[in-house]
């Protein structure tokens, strides 16, 4: 009996230890990747690199147009996707009755989020670039990216709206406010932090998306900054791909790719970190 008991205990210890090892190695693997990118890229980065134009067919100079290009694309995508997503979420949580309709809308959202990014690229190419004749441009790229992040924003807004306690709604309605007044003045303000978190997560995701912009917005090398929403742009993620995959002088271009990767990685990790902290803080506040 005594022997069997210690054996049970030993097995438990062994297996838990093994699971811990798997967990640590998973994090270590992901950490190694980030470490290597930083190790090779940090040396490239300087103020010059961030604020100057590329030169000599992208073999020298900085990545200013790629930073600005990504900024324009992301801003455009968020400006389009946020109202769409928030209004959709308001209907889903505040108005729609449980039933077939809401089930169909949910299926639509979850399937849209599963569409491969390259398929969004083809859609953008066919509709925005060709059919609506926006050309390869900031506009086409932003609209394509807006569709990519729409599900993220809808889900986050839905969660934020649902976490607003029902007492808020009934108090406002009892005071004689209409449903829309209640939403506008009570429910929406209370859910802003959650919606904002969703938007920030969306920014993080869309800043790194490459496949949707290859055919809709991105160009490898440009001597000038974009003039209007109909200009094609350089973008950070596409720049990394183009430098290592199609670049003609690797000795000069691969270091620039690593530098660009560090800039992109720092941006994305920082954005995600902010979103995660906001969510933790906000959910603690709600729990109290």
């Amino acid at each position: 009996m005594e022997n069997k008991f210690t054996k049970r205990k030993a097995t438990e210890k062994l297996i838990f230890w093994f699971l811990g090892l798997m967990m640590l190695s998973s994090i270590a693997i992901l950490g190694i990747i980030i470490f290597f990118i930083f190790k090779r890229g940090v040396g490239v980065i300087s103020w010059e690199f961030l604020i100057s134009m590329p030169m000599n067919g992208m073999t020298e100079g900085g990545i200013l147009p790629a930073i600005l290009g990504s900024f324009y694309l992301v801003t455009g995508a968020i400006l389009v996707a946020t109202p769409l997503g928030v209004f959709a979420a308001i209907y889903m949580t505040e108005y729609a009755q449980k039933g077939k309709l809401i089930r169909i809308i949910r299926i639509g959202v979850s399937n849209l989020s599963g569409v491969p990014s390259v398929v969004f690229g083809l859609f953008g190419l066919s509709i925005f670039v060709k059919y609506l004749n926006f050309g390869v441009s900031i506009l086409s790229g932003s609209l394509t990216l807006a569709i990519v992040i729409l599900p993220t924003i809808i889900r986050a807004s839905e969660e934020a709206l649902m976490s607003v306690p029902d007492e808020y709604r009934s108090s406002s309605l009892a005071l004689g406010a209409t449903k829309w007044q209640t939403i506008k003045h009570v429910v929406l303000p209370a859910s802003i932090p959650g919606i904002l978190t969703g938007c920030i997560l969306g920014v993080g995701r869309v800043a790194g998306e490459t496949a949707p912009i290859i055919f809709t917005a991105a160009t490898f090398f440009s001597m000038r900054l974009p003039k209007s929403v109909f200009s094609e742009v350089m973008a950070l993620p596409y720049n990394i791909y183009a430098l290592v995959a199609t670049g003609t002088s690797p000795q000069k271009q691969v270091p620039i790719a690593y530098g660009t990767a560090v800039v992109l990685l720092v941006l994305v990790l920082l954005i995600n970190l902010i979103a995660i902290f906001m969510r933790i803080k906000y959910s603690n506040k709600n729990a109290n």
């Binding site: 994090i27 290597f36 990118i37 993080g204 790194g208 290592v244 995600n272």
Partner: peptide
């Protein structure tokens, strides 16, 4: 600590993994 770290790593863009895979 671990859960947020992993969520943060979920946001690493695919092109970064591509760069690591290709060059390292």
């Amino acid at each position: 600590i671990v859960k947020p770290t992993i969520e943060m790593l979920a946001g690493v863009p695919s092109v970064i993994y591509g760069l690591f895979g290709m060059k390292i």
